[in-house]
Amino acid sequence: MTDPVIELRGVTRRYDEGPPALHDVSLTVQPGESVAVLGPSGSGKSTLLNLLAGLDRPDAGTVAVAGTRLEKLGEAASARFRRAHVGLIFQFFNLLDDLTVLDNVLLPAQLAGAPARVSREHATRLLDSLGITRHAHAYPGRLSGGERQRVAVARALINRPALLLADEPTGALDTASGEDVRHLLDELHHSGQTIVLVTHDLRLAEACASRTIRLRDGRVEVAG
């Protein structure tokens, strides 16, 4: 049996004096799985995603992603871990306005110090496979929401991450663009990419996830 990509054990994360954002959460995700995390606002979905991306650290418990114990990493090690193992897709794309589409996609590879020629070829292939090659030298501000999210997906995949984390990837898109992204994530799932997506969108969860987890008040309510 292969090692899990994600292994959370008794993770608790508390902000200030209020109730914990996550309370004693345990979760395992195997390679190639696509897991949808569902739940209402304030249920702890974003906190879980931040912990998986190494953007935050738990107050208790352990978080292991791609064999790396994240709760022990410092800022620099977390950054190196992210660019090596995690691709991030955000609800509002978070593309850098002053960089072209191609430069946005290349940025994580460049930060990782990957060979320029290899990264460029890979970026070109990704843009091609996502159908946005014609926008390679355009700036994100000129693209539609769906196209921007495709750019974000290409950027998330540039370093061939073991884990793709998507935070409400269709949340800021119109219906047609949302459908577009759903297909894209489904294709990625079927290509063997491990995905954790946080969403309110049940249709997205049904279409792209092999498993769903429902959070409420920081606890895993249902794990399907």
Binding site: A53, E75, R83, A84, L88, L96, L107, P108, L111, A112
Partner: peptide, 16 residues
């Protein structure tokens, strides 16, 4: 600061 967050989320280390 938001762009800075994006850079860091994409793997920019404190040194970088």
């Amino acid at each position: 600061v938001h762009d800075l967050g994006v850079h860091k989320a994409l793997g920019m280390t404190p040194g970088q």
